[in-house]
Design a protein around this nucleic acid. Structure first.
Ligand SMILES: [Zn+2]
Ligand SMILES: [Zn+2]
Ligand SMILES: [Zn+2]
Ligand SMILES: [Zn+2]
Lengths: 137, 137
DNA sequence: CTTGACCTTAGGGTGTACTCCAAGGTTTAT
DNA sequence: ATAAACCTTGGAGTACACCCTAAGGTCAAG
């Protein structure tokens, strides 16, 4: 499919796709005789991967590194490729851990509030926010 | 403490701190007679909160919204404040879910690789990466 | 065979989040 | 008292990730 249809399917702009190509994140599978970009289902999968990674806070250069796993093919051993994958996975695990602490902070915060209709001036939620780091330890 | 010491403690630049103040993320507790910014332990807690949020991929404007919980004091009821906190918490939960899918993708990928010393040319990890979305469904 | 919807590249503009001066005032140490 | 090490504001510059426009080529429908 051409760039317009592909962009609509993925919910991004054609400009974004050209930008990603220029920066080595997603090169369309081929070009038509007239030079049009041709995207395939494989490209949809890779683009979905990119968008999910972006959504959880990875920068484009970090995502590019994640995709490098694919590019190292013949220059590297299975061992190296596996190591790299596990290393990236650990990075994700760290983020999950931090986010979980964050989630717990907000949960505790909510728990401390009565949720009533009175003005929140003396609400413990507000006085506790300053201690949010203390809450999680 | 003054801005330099505070910056060193938190591992950021003084420029960043002035930038955050200008954009409403962290206003130092007070100023000295000569106009120097004076930061306290409370400011350390708030800044740690900001940095943790940044680390897990929140933008500064999102973080500002998170901190609004504190600012709404007398204008809002306990009910509203609690709702806001829970809503922010759900946003964090969504991110955790996405990151977890991501983690599973990379785990499955690693599992498919023998990890041996031969060139990775025929490594299933590389042929599977294109199918990474399929892996998680 | 022309209209309109698509596509191409090149290059400029925007918002975010810093980062780096410049010119000057303050504080501490010798 | 004067240097060194802080601090102040204002404004300019940078990197990232787009976003938009211009000028033109391609292609299916009427
Ligand atoms: Zn309350
Ligand atoms: Zn209450
Ligand atoms: Zn392998
Ligand atoms: Zn192998």
């Amino acid at each position: 499919m051409k760039i317009g249809e592909f962009a609509r399917k993925l919910g991004v702009s054609t400009d974004t796709l050209r930008y990603y190509e220029k920066h080595g994140l997603l090169t369309p599978s081929s070009r038509s005789q007239s030079g049009y970009r041709i995207y395939t289902d494989t490209d949809i999968k890779q683009m979905s991967f990119i968008l999910r990674a972006k959504n959880v806070g990875f920068s484009l250069s970090e995502i590019k590194e994640l995709l490098q796993i694919k590019i190292h093919k013949d220059q590297h051993s299975c061992h190296e490729v596996k190591e790299m994958t596990l290393q990236k996975r650990d990075l994700v695990a760290q983020r999950i851990e931090e986010l979980t602490r964050f989630y717990d902070s907000l949960s505790l915060l909510a728990k401390k509030c009565c949720g009533g209709e009175e003005p929140a001036e003396n609400c413990s939620i507000l006085t506790t926010l300053e201690d949010i780091d203390g809450l999680t330890h």
